[in-house]
Write a protein that binds this DNA or RNA. Structure first.
Length: 296
DNA sequence: AAGTAATCCTGATCGC
DNA sequence: TGCGATCAGGATTACT
């Protein structure tokens, strides 16, 4: 569920509370959250202990914290249900607490002394990953080197996105969800951007026009920036910022989760059309059958 | 090689 | 009340 805006909210939280502090102790409560760290939990704890946290970076839904003095970063992925919480040590353990980092002194006096990784469904996780140069020139963890830039990065221009879509032989929503084409887009913002663009999820990418590509990119940016302003989207309280608060962008959704509701655009145009839910890619797609016509 | 389906994982919810 | 089925879905893995 956490997509680009939700991960960015978390990144900003870590940026304001943890930068410059050292990791004094690492406690792994559930090794399954370190599945992606091949050398194992002991190696993770050993190589992270004593390191100083630098400004957190993000590409798409991938978040990482570079460490001073060493060539690797702490990479965090929230998956479906991951949370990063800044807590004081006397706060009771969360039910799904997976990893605790005890942090050293902060510049800010009231800063919480622990960074906790909580994850119910364990699709997310942490790992240490060497920093390398991505094809576009940016320095990223090797574990995320295959991930494409996201809509908020400068390298993503109208022409870049048009080319990226045109190079694929697939449907538009499949393309949006493919993190090697463009990153940061998940089911919620894909449906919202498609609704905003008035395009069907099955629109072939191979024949997309420049105008359509630019419209989809603009829609992605518009919806993601609006969500960021609202502190992110949350449906089931699984997604929260580092202080444990959830965003309220779900109140602004036009398509996702709106099955049975009138399409607001059609209503504005004096027509009544109801948002439908369709099974697609083993998940739900929400769309207005009136203004998002299936390609023939 | 590229595109797509299968898989992992837990808890809430639903129907019987 | 209990229990199996269903749903939620990001990213990797395994196929075709």
């Amino acid at each position: 569920m956490p997509e680009l805006p939700e991960v960015e909210v978390v990144r900003r939280g870590v940026d304001s509370w943890a930068v410059g502090r050292s990791v004094e102790q690492v406690v792994v409560h559930d090794a399954r959250s370190l599945r992606r760290h091949a050398p194992g939990p002991e190696d993770f704890a050993h190589r992270l202990t004593g390191q100083q946290l630098q400004a957190p970076q993000r590409r798409g839904k991938f978040l990482w914290v570079p460490l001073a003095q060493v060539p690797y970063a702490l990479m965090i992925h929230l998956g479906m249900s991951g949370q990063v919480l800044m807590q004081s040590a006397d706060t009771p353990r969360e039910k799904h607490l997976k990893v605790t980092l005890d942090l050293g002194e902060a510049d800010v006096e009231v800063a919480p002394d622990q960074l906790r990784f909580v994850d119910q469904r364990i699709f997310g996780g942490m790992q240490l990953s060497d920093l390398v140069q991505a094809p576009d020139g940016r320095t990223v963890p090797v574990a995320a080197v295959h991930i494409a830039p996201d809509p908020l990065e400068d390298v993503v221009t109208d022409e870049w996105f048009f080319r990226a879509l045109r190079n694929r032989r697939t449907g538009l929503k499949r393309g949006l969800l493919d993190q090697t084409l463009i990153s940061g887009v998940g089911n919620i913002y894909a449906d919202e951007a498609l609704w905003m663009s008035q395009l069907h999820y099955a629109r072939p990418t191979a024949t997309i026009t420049r105008r359509q590509a630019a419209l989809v990119l603009e829609s992605l940016r518009t919806v993601m920036l609006a969500a960021l302003d609202a502190g992110g989207t949350s449906f089931d309280a699984l997604y929260v910022n580092v202080n444990g608060a959830s965003g309220y962008f779900d109140r602004s959704l036009h398509a996702y989760g709106q099955e049975g509701q009138y399409c607001s655009r059609c209503l504005d145009g004096g027509r009544e059309s109801v948002i439908v839910r369709e099974k697609f890619m083993n998940r739900s797609s929400y769309l207005c059958p009136q203004c998002q016509r299936r390609p023939r």
